[in-house]
């Protein structure tokens, strides 16, 4: 067995929920190097969330990927979230990072306004981001700038609207017919 990171190896029941706990070493490292890249650090349920301003997300990802001791070389997941049409900022994009050498995880978060739902693409950092970003674009309408191939992925190309937005009705706008 490989050595285990003590941070991630705790049994689940020992995890405590604290909104204002001490920042994790990951967030601390990021803040030490580039304080302007983190606007907020949230520690909850044993998971670290770092809110990153939109313009720094690619730099922050590239830094986390290569920085010694962090080595987040694996993008587990990327997903969007819509807080609802009344909320401002409306959209969140979550990046779940994992390290295949250190075995720790972190979540980066970017918040976006509705009228300017653009975020730089991280496909240059991890190629796996390609489909995740296409999916988020398809379902939320978040535009990933500099994405090599930003098309709809799940829904047909002529689909109207973005299905996972809160104001999209569950049953769609009109019933289906072949004609």
């Amino acid at each position: 067995m490989e050595p285990q990171n003590p941070q991630t190896n705790q049994p689940e029941n020992e995890l405590t929920s604290s909104e204002t706990g001490t920042p994790s070493p990951i967030a601390a490292a990021l803040q030490r190097e580039h304080p302007e890249w983190t606007s907020e650090v949230i520690e909850a349920l044993g998971e670290t969330t770092i809110v990153v301003p939109r313009e720094h997300i690619v730099d922050a990802c590239a830094f986390l990927k290569t920085a010694p001791g962090l080595e987040f070389n694996f993008l587990s997941d990327l997903c969007g979230f819509d807080r609802g049409p009344e909320e401002e900022p409306r959209f969140e994009v979550n990046y779940h990072l994992f390290s295949t050498t250190k075995f720790h995880r972190v979540r980066l978060k970017v918040v976006l306004n509705e009228d300017d739902a653009h975020v730089p693409s991280v496909t240059g950092v991890w190629r796996t981001a390609n489909w995740h970003e296409r999916e988020t674009y398809d379902l939320f309408g978040v535009i990933f700038d500099n994405h090599p191939d930003l098309r709809r992925i799940l829904l047909p190309d002529d689909w109207q609207g973005h299905a996972l937005r809160k104001d999209f009705p569950l049953r769609g706008y009109e019933p289906y017919s072949l004609e």
């Binding site: 829904l155 299905a163 999209f168 569950l170 049953r171 019933p175 289906y176």
Partner: peptide
């Protein structure tokens, strides 16, 4: 699956 994606 009574929703937008599936043909009922």
């Amino acid at each position: 699956f009574d929703n937008y994606a599936i043909v009922q």
